[in-house]
C-alpha cells in the first residue's frame, strides 16, 4: 500500500482529509429531497433559513454524520484497547460479548421498562456490556498472567450466544417494541439526531482522550506481562482503566446507534498495516479509519435500496467479513 510508506504526519493528514471529504459527501448524498454539494457547505457556514435542503442538512444529516464519526472512532479505539489489554488479536467488543451484553441490557429495558427513555437505555447498555465483559474476562481467565488466548475468545463467543438468545426472548415477550429493537440490533444511524449527539460527545471525547493516555502503557504490555511489570507498568491499574474506557466507548456508541460490529475487530489491524505496532501512532489512525468506515457504510446503507435505508451495521458486516477472512489467510493477525 502506498499510504504505508508515507511518514506518520502525512498519513494523519491524508486520512483526516479523506474523512472530511467522506463526511461532506454523506451530508448531501442519497437524499429523498435533492441536496446539492453546495447546499451542504452553505448549511454549515451561512445557513439560508428558507432553504429546505439546508434545513435537512443541518437538522438531520449533520448530527448523523457527526455521530457516525464519533461511533466509528469509539469502536475502533475500543478494539485497539481490548486487543492491547488482552494481547489477543481477535479481541474486540463484538467478539468478547460487550456488544451482545449491551444489546441485551437495552432490549431488556426497552421491552420491560420502556418509560426510562434514552438515558435509561444508555445506562442499561453500560451495565449489560460491563457484566458480560467481566464475565468473559473471568471465564477466559484473562486476569491471570500467561492466559490462553483461545479461551478468552471461546468465552466471548459463548456469552455472546447466550445474550443473543436472551435478547431474542425478550423481544418475543414484548412484541410491540420488537421492530424498534430489531432495527437497533442491526445497527443503524437513521435515527441519529442532535439530542443523541449531545449525550454521546462528552463521553466519547473523554474516553478517546483516556485511551490516548493509555497508549504508552499498551506499548509496554506488548512485551508480555513479566516485562511490563519489570518496566514499572501497573498491570491491574492499566487493565481496570482500560476496561472502564472500553465500556464507556462501546456502551455510549451502541446506545446511540445500535449494535455495530466489525469496526473494533478490523480497524486496529488496518491501522497496524499502515504504521506498525506503536499504539501512540496506530490508535489515532484507528480512530480516523473507524470514523471513515462507519460514515462510508452509512452512505452505502442509504444507497442500496434508495430511497429506503438498510442498516449500516449490515453494510459493515458485508465489508468486514471478507476483509477479516483476508486477514486470517494472510496471518497478519
Amino acid at each position: 500500500m502506498m499510504l504505508s510508506r508515507l511518514p506518520f504526519a502525512w498519513q494523519c493528514i491524508v486520512l483526516g482529509a479523506s474523512l472530511l471529504i467522506i463526511a461532506w459527501i454523506s451530508l448531501f448524498s442519497w437524499s429523498a429531497v435533492q441536496i446539492t454539494p453546495m447546499d451542504a457547505l452553505h448549511a454549515l457556514f451561512n445557513m439560508d433559513n428558507t432553504s429546505v435542503p439546508q434545513h435537512i442538512v443541518q437538522d438531520l444529516r449533520l448530527p448523523r454524520t457527526l455521530i457516525g464519526i464519533l461511533v466509528g472512532a469509539s469502536l475502533a479505539a475500543a478494539g485497539v484497547v481490548m486487543q492491547g489489554l488482552t494481547q489477543n488479536p481477535l479481541a474486540a467488543p463484538s467478539v468478547l460479548g460487550v456488544n451482545a451484553g449491551a444489546a441485551l441490557g437495552m432490549a431488556a429495558v426497552s421491552t420491560i421498562a420502556p418509560w426510562f427513555g434514552l438515558l435509561g437505555t444508555s445506562v442499561a447498555a453500560i451495565i449489560g456490556g460491563g457484566m458480560t465483559w467481566t464475565l468473559v474476562m473471568v471465564l477466559g481467565s484473562a486476569w491471570k498472567s500467561g492466559n490462553d488466548s483461545s479461551r478468552l475468545v471461546l468465552a466471548g463467543v459463548a456469552i455472546s450466544a447466550l445474550c443473543a438468545a436472551l435478547t431474542k426472548a425478550s423481544i418475543i415477550m414484548a412484541e410491540d417494541q420488537a421492530s424498534g429493537v430489531l432495527t437497533w440490533l442491526a445497527g443503524s444511524l437513521a435515527n441519529a439526531r442532535w439530542n443523541t449527539f449531545d449525550h454521546l460527545w462528552p463521553i466519547s471525547l473523554f474516553s478517546l482522550l483516556g485511551c490516548m493516555a493509555l497508549s504508552p502503557t499498551l506499548n509496554i504490555l506488548q512485551l508480555g506481562e513479566e516485562n511490563a511489570r519489570n518496566l514499572g507498568a501497573s498491570l491491574i491499574l492499566t487493565k481496570l482503566a482500560g476496561s472502564f474506557l472500553v465500556l464507556l466507548l462501546v456502551a455510549s456508541a451502541i446506545s446511540s446507534v445500535g449494535s455495530i460490529g466489525f469496526v473494533g475487530l478490523l480497524v486496529p489491524h488496518m491501522a497496524k498495516m499502515l504504521c506498525g505496532q506503536d499504539h501512540r501512532r496506530f490508535l489515532p489512525l484507528s480512530m480516523l479509519l473507524g470514523a471513515m468506515l462507519v460514515v462510508l457504510s452509512d452512505i452505502i446503507s442509504r444507497s442500496i435500496i434508495f430511497p429506503m435505508e438498510t442498516p449500516a451495521g449490515a453494510v459493515l458486516a458485508l465489508i468486514g467479513a471478507p476483509f477479516f477472512i483476508y486477514l486470517v489467510r494472510k496471518r497478519t493477525l
Partner: peptide
Amino acid sequence: SKGLAKQLALLPQTQPIPEGIKVKD
C-alpha cells in the same frame, strides 16, 4: 513499581515474540 524499575531489572527466561516490532524500538 516505576521507581523500582530504575533500581532492578529482570531478564525473564522465556520471552514472547512480539509481532511487528523493530529491534531498536
